[in-house]
Amino acid sequence: MKSKMKPVRLVYSTEESVQALKSVPTFASSTLQLLGSHQSQHPYCYELMFKVGDDLRQDVLILQMFSCFNSLWLQHDLDLKLLSYKCVAAELDAGLIEMVQNASTISKIQQWYNEEKKKAFGSLSVAWSRDVIYLWLASDICNGNKPLPNEIIEKATTEFILSCAGSCVASYVLGIGDRHNDNIMVHRSGRLFHIDFGHILGRKKSKFGINRERVPLILPASFMYIINRDYEANNDQSPSYRRNFEFFKRLLIQAFMVLRDNVDMVCNMLYAMKNAGMPELKSLSDVNYVRETLFVGDTREEAEKKFVQKINDSTKSSWTVNVNWATHNYKHWK
């Protein structure tokens, strides 16, 4: 089975979890039968994906790097709400991945928006819909898509903004490619996170010699709608709009500078795996890619200025992300 084919979903329970269920009077024997089915909300079930066709050692490495980044940021009082998950490489082309519950890919969210909200017309136009993620976070999808309380929506949008900042910086520094809308997910709590790290250290996807990924940071209109809090009826000339984006930009810069200050530790983690035979980490030049993204040869002021330019380039050319996502939808939606 190649990686593009549908992986196998495994749902299981441990002997300890079954015994725990038996000790709870409210759970009858019929509940135990559910352990063999998809029960994402059940605390005693675990769900994994068995995937064949990719070297998951790269995924393991990147997830470890993300955890390292998160620890560094927390040491500087910067909680960017990075959501991680477990991954185990069983062989060179097979392994197990933890499935994050209560989360959906952006592609699935767009399908929900298209089918439930009926605010878009097919797989192409929905890629340009600005309020798609916001409405998903603001809706009780298990209760007829009724609006959630304002305090829940505010917490979810805040978590989205923080996690978006962390994910943007982490994926930029490590040069993670293939960032289509099936490789970025959003948790119901609002946390945005990336999955599937088959392309790293600047190796971007292309088609017929055309680079499909043209921006350093993934900041499409549906992200900016939440970051700028456009749902509060601000416009692009209002002081509050500018304050919202400046706050987000400051988060990006702070996260970037923390990693730059710890570039040796970041590179040492990559260097330790250089001889492991991973597909896209084979040489010192691969390791040095991170030094280039962090502008190690420049002063702090120059590095910050160059990174700000990367942010500006990403917002100005964010339409290219929409094109990439629309193309992906057209190819994969049924």
Results as ranks from 00 to 15, higher is better:
328 H>L: 10
24 V>T: 13
266 V>P: 02
10 L>F: 06
15 E>W: 08
256 F>L: 06
157 T>M: 05
102 N>Q: 09
265 M>L: 13
178 D>F: 01
115 E>S: 14
73 W>L: 01
264 D>Q: 13
71 S>A: 15
186 V>R: 03
113 Y>L: 00
56 L>H: 02
85 Y>E: 07
248 F>L: 05
74 L>I: 00
271 Y>K: 12
87 C>L: 04
234 N>K: 12
210 I>N: 13
82 L>D: 07
141 I>C: 14
222 S>T: 05
263 V>Q: 10
158 T>H: 12
94 A>K: 07
70 N>E: 13
92 L>R: 15
239 P>E: 15
146 K>H: 10
71 S>N: 09
175 G>Q: 06
287 V>N: 02
281 L>F: 04
326 A>P: 01
169 V>R: 03
14 T>V: 00
222 S>M: 09
311 I>Q: 06
322 N>S: 15
216 P>K: 09
216 P>V: 00
122 G>K: 01
302 E>A: 13
16 E>Q: 15
37 S>C: 08
146 K>C: 11
102 N>V: 02
93 D>H: 10
122 G>E: 09
93 D>T: 05
331 K>D: 10
144 G>I: 01
186 V>S: 04
119 K>D: 11
11 V>A: 14
77 D>I: 00
293 T>C: 11
306 K>Y: 07
78 L>F: 05
168 C>T: 00
75 Q>H: 10
219 L>I: 01
5 M>Q: 11
69 F>G: 01
285 S>A: 11
130 R>G: 08
238 S>H: 07
144 G>L: 05
49 M>L: 15
234 N>I: 07
130 R>L: 09
246 E>C: 10
211 N>K: 13
71 S>D: 12
43 P>W: 05
322 N>C: 14
55 D>Q: 07
279 P>K: 13
327 T>L: 12
90 A>S: 14
62 I>R: 07
202 G>A: 07
231 Y>F: 08
24 V>A: 13
233 A>M: 13
80 L>S: 03
161 I>V: 05
330 Y>Q: 14
236 D>I: 09
280 E>H: 15
35 L>F: 01
39 Q>S: 12
12 Y>I: 03
193 F>W: 03
205 K>E: 11
130 R>V: 06
154 E>T: 05
28 A>P: 04
32 L>G: 01
84 S>I: 03
43 P>C: 06
100 V>T: 03
59 D>W: 01
160 F>Q: 02
111 Q>N: 12
258 V>P: 02
325 W>Q: 04
